[in-house]
Design a protein around this nucleic acid. Structure first.
Lengths: 216, 216
DNA sequence: CCGCAAACTAGAACAGATTCTAATCTGTGT
DNA sequence: ACACAGATTAGAATCTGTTCTAGTTTGCGG
C-alpha cells in the first residue's frame, strides 16, 4: 500500500541528504559509519541479484539475507523495493559517469557528444538486460522523483554544453538534452520488447539529434 | 512469476479473437452467450474500482466479488491483473474512438487533427487521474504486445491520413503518428508527476507536431 | 434423458512485499 | 560507568496477486 510520499533511501534519521564530512566534531543525530557500509552492502547484494534474474530475483528477503541485515533494517534503509531498485540504478549511472570522465565523448558537435553518451549507456545496458529492464521500469514507474531522468539529462547537458550545469544551460540546450533522453528511453523500451537492435537504436538516436539540431 | 507469454483475455477456449457470428450453426467450442456478459461485468467492475482508487483499489478479489464471479473465473478470463488493466484501458479507447466518430477533429491539417485527438484524449484522462495512471503504466509496462500504443497510433493515423488504414499509410505518416504518440505518452507521464498542466502539454504537443511536419 | 467436457464456484494454499513486535545492541551525553 | 534514544534483529503477521483442489453446473451430442 504505497503511501503518497516515500522519502528516498538515506541512512536513518538523516534530515537532508548532505551527510559527508564531520569526523569528530559536533555530530548529533547521524549514525554515519557502519551505516554507509551497510547501505553499500545492501545495494551491492541487490545489484548482484538483479543482474542475474532481474527485479524478480531481487527479493527483499534474499537481499537482506545476502547483505547480512534483518529484513526490517533493509526496509529502514529502503522503504520499498522500488526505492532499492532506484538505488541500484543510481550505482549504474555512477559507473557511466566515471566511464565518461575517464574517456570523454570525442565527437565535435554538442549533439554528437550527447549521442555518444547515450549509445555508450545503451551498450552497457545491453550487457545486462535484466538490469536494463529494471532500470527502465523504475525510471518510468517511480512515483518518487526519479533521480534517473534528471541525472541522465544532466549528464547529456554536461557533455553537450561542455561543462555547464543545469542551472546555467540555455532553454535550448535543456530541451535538446531532455528530448534526447526521452527518445532514448522510448527506444530502450522498444529494445526490451525485442523490436530494436543496437543499430536501429543508433540510427534513430542520430536522427533525433539531427532533427533537434535543425530545430534550434 | 509472469511467464514470458501471457495470451490476452478472450472468453475461454477461443482460439482466434474473432468470435462474433454463428447463432445456430456448427459451433463446437465457444460458450459465447453469458460469457460476454460475464466478461463485461468483470471489466465494468474493474473500471469502477480503478476510477476510484486506481490500480491499487482494483484488487482481484474485490473485482471478482463485485462482478459476481469466482476468483478462479476471473483468472480464467484475465490471466493476470495486467491483462485486466489492459482490458479496462481498451474500454477507454473505445470511448475515445466513438467520441471521435461522433465529432471528428475539425483541424485542416493532418497534424492538426492528430493533435486534436491527443488533446481530447488528454482531457478525458485528466478527469480520472487514477485511471490515467493505470493506463500509462500498463501501456509502458505491458510485456504482452500492448494494444494501446498500437491503437492510439492507428487512431492518429486515421485522422491524420484521413481514412487510410495502417497498411496504406506512407512511412512518413506512420512516423508522424508514432512520434506524436510517443511524445504524448511522455507528456502524460510528466503530468502524472505533477510537472505539466494541460496548457503545457498542449503547447508541447503542438510544438512536436510542428517539428515533425517540418521534417517531412 | 444420459454422459461428458468445459466452465464455474468456494475456499484453501502459496509467494513475495510490507508491516509489526519484542528483545537486544550501539553510540552519545553525563 | 550509567542511562537513554535510535538502530538492529529474528521472526511472526498481514496483504494481495496467483495457483490449486474438489466439487458443482451447464450445454451439447447422442
Amino acid at each position: 500500500m504505497r503511501t503518497p510520499q516515500a522519502p528516498i533511501a538515506t541512512p536513518p534519521s538523516d534530515p537532508k541528504g548532505t551527510v559527508e564530512s564531520q569526523s569528530t566534531s559536533g555530530g548529533h543525530s547521524v549514525r554515519t559509519r557502519s551505516q554507509h557500509q551497510r547501505r553499500k552492502r545492501i545495494v551491492q547484494a541487490a545489484a548482484a541479484l538483479a543482474s542475474r534474474g532481474g527485479v524478480e530475483a531481487m527479493q527483499m528477503r534474499t537481499v537482506a539475507e545476502r547483505a547480512g541485515v534483518a529484513l526490517g533494517t533493509l526496509y529502514r534503509y529502503f522503504p520499498s523495493k522500488m526505492d532499492l531498485v532506484v538505488a541500484v540504478v543510481g550505482e549504474e549511472i555512477d559507473l557511466l559517469e566515471s566511464s565518461i570522465e575517464r574517456r570523454p565523448p570525442s565527437a565535435s558537435t554538442p549533439a554528437g557528444r550527447a549521442v555518444d553518451v547515450l549509445m555508450r549507456a545503451t551498450r552497457g545496458l545491453m550487457r545486462e538486460p535484466e538490469l536494463a529492464d529494471a532500470l527502465i521500469r523504475s525510471l518510468i514507474m517511480a512515483e518518487v522523483d526519479t533521480p534517473f531522468g534528471e541525472r541522465m539529462t544532466g549528464l547529456l547537458l554536461r557533455v553537450s554544453a561542455d561543462g555547464l550545469t543545469r542551472e546555467r544551460a540555455t532553454e535550448v540546450q535543456l530541451d535538446l538534452a531532455g528530448s534526447l533522453s526521452s527518445v532514448w528511453v522510448q527506444e530502450l523500451l522498444e529494445m526490451l520488447r525485442g523490436r530494436r537492435t543496437y543499430e536501429q537504436i543508433q540510427r534513430r538516436i542520430d536522427l533525433a539529434a539531427d532533427r533537434l539540431v535543425n530545430d534550434l
